[in-house]
């Protein structure tokens, strides 16, 4: 049913995404951690493409790999006297145990549940359908999202303003 290319793409992108996320944990330099985070974002965008979500993949590149990464880098650069060592708190061991428990539980549930999968259509473009849905069925959440963005922008400006 599926060609070899998409299977290879899935495995390569999964390894890149999870490996970069592990490097975010492992590296000792905060700047390097941000760079690996960007790599992980790009890997997730590739996984979106293998799921035929072209519009969401482009949005992921623009917002996450572009805007949010630049925001995080700015926050690191603008705190010059803060520690850059990416170290852990005393919660390292409990955090590890809890994260492992959550991962194993979610993974086990994902494996044993019968998800009643529908037949998959061919790869198709989604941007036009998403645009119609945003302005028709989801127009109220769309407007609320714009108000949230405005409130966040005003709040961020008020918070960091020198006075």
């Amino acid at each position: 049913m599926e060609d070899v290319g998409s299977i290879v793409a899935f495995w390569v992108l999964s390894v890149v995404t999870v490996g970069a996320a592990l490097m975010v944990v492992a590296v000792r330099n905060l700047i390097h951690a941000v760079l690996f985070l960007i790599l992980s974002f790009i890997g997730v965008a590739g996984l979106y493409i293998t799921l035929s979500a072209d519009f969401v993949a482009i949005t992921q590149i623009l917002i996450y790999a572009g805007a949010i990464s630049v925001l995080i880098l700015f926050a690191v650069m603008l705190t010059p006297r803060a520690a850059r060592d990416n170290a852990e708190t005393f919660l390292q061991l409990p955090g590890l145990v809890l994260a492992a428990l959550v991962g194993v539980t979610v993974g086990a549930i994902a494996l044993v549940t019968d998800w009643n999968e529908a037949t998959r259509g061919p790869f198709s473009e989604t941007a036009a359908a998403i645009g119609e849905a945003l302005l028709d069925k989801y127009v109220l959440p769309f407007e609320i999202a714009s108000v949230i963005l405005l409130a966040a922008m005003v709040g961020a400006i008020v918070l960091v303003r020198e006075d």
Partner: peptide, 20 residues
């Protein structure tokens, strides 16, 4: 779903344990 679960648990650990 497995990739999502692994990524979520890594993110959970980072959010819980990082000092910065």
């Amino acid at each position: 779903l497995m990739v999502g679960a692994i990524l979520f648990s890594i993110g959970l650990y980072v959010a819980l344990a990082k000092r910065n």
